[in-house]
């Protein structure tokens, strides 16, 4: 019965994946990605990887749709049609996929007890965590105690991801001096980007985005709520 559920979920997963590739409407693709996440969480449950399924559930249901919609709000939601069929990428993908499929023939059978992954440290963790750590969930004890260094690195990686996204996207406080309409001028504290942009529209046809980009993540000036630029709704 479990095998049947496995196969059924995998078939649905494959259909969803192919559909995501073929959709040109990115918004619809985001929604299909939501279905993909739900299906893979169910699949993880079937395969007994409950902690992984939990992560997938939390991220897929709570955050990822919101973040992808935020991206679409920035980039627009229609994918451009490719001008010509991508022959070379297709060739590369086919060759890589062929090699990978060939590689699976050498892999140990799924779930077999003699697999190398079950031979080295895994039995020790499973048997000894009961009285080394004395908590019932072996996943937690492996993650936080036996493999604490790895988890520390992962936490640092998550932090690095934040730094990267902020460097690329965040609009920190305005710098003290901006190039506006061809001349440098000092910005009063508290000025929003919209005001600057309106001034720039009156000046030359310089695009008002000169003030962006710099500033980065350094907090310091009182302008940091202008990340939103919505207070007062002065465009109304």
């Amino acid at each position: 019965m479990i095998e049947f559920v496995d196969v059924a979920l995998l078939v649905l997963l494959a259909i969803t994946g192919v559909t995501i590739i073929r959709l040109r409407n990115l918004f619809a693709a985001v929604m299909m990605a939501g279905i993909y996440s739900l299906l893979s969480a169910a699949l993880f449950v079937v395969m007994d990887a409950v902690d992984v399924a939990f992560t997938e559930a939390a991220v897929g249901a709570g955050i990822s749709t919101v973040l992808m919609l935020g991206t679409l709000a920035l980039v627009g939601h229609q994918e451009k049609k490719p001008r010509r069929p991508a022959i070379v990428p297709l060739f590369v993908v086919l060759v890589t996929g062929g090699i990978l499929v060939y590689g699976t023939s050498q892999m140990p059978p799924f779930g077999h007890a003699d697999n190398p992954i079950h031979q080295h440290v895994a039995p020790y963790y499973l048997e000894e965590s009961e009285h080394d750590i004395e908590i019932p969930n072996v996943v937690t004890s492996v993650l936080s105690s036996y493999r604490g260094y790895d988890t520390m690195g992962e936490t640092a990686v998550v932090f690095t991801a934040m730094v990267g996204v902020l460097l690329l996207l965040a609009r920190g406080p305005l710098p003290r001096r901006v190039l506006l309409g061809g001349e440098w001028r000092t910005v009063r504290p508290g000025t929003t980007r919209e005001e600057l942009r309106a001034e720039a529209a009156h000046a030359l046809d310089a695009d008002g985005s000169d003030g962006d980009g710099s500033g980065g993540t350094t907090p310091g000036s009182p302008g940091s709520e202008d990340i939103v630029g919505e207070q007062g709704g002065k465009h109304g």
Partner: peptide, 13 residues
């Protein structure tokens, strides 16, 4: 937009 609570028309640009 995900951040706003009322519709904001585009600025003069």
């Amino acid at each position: 937009d995900l951040g706003l609570t009322r519709r904001v028309e585009r600025g003069p640009e």
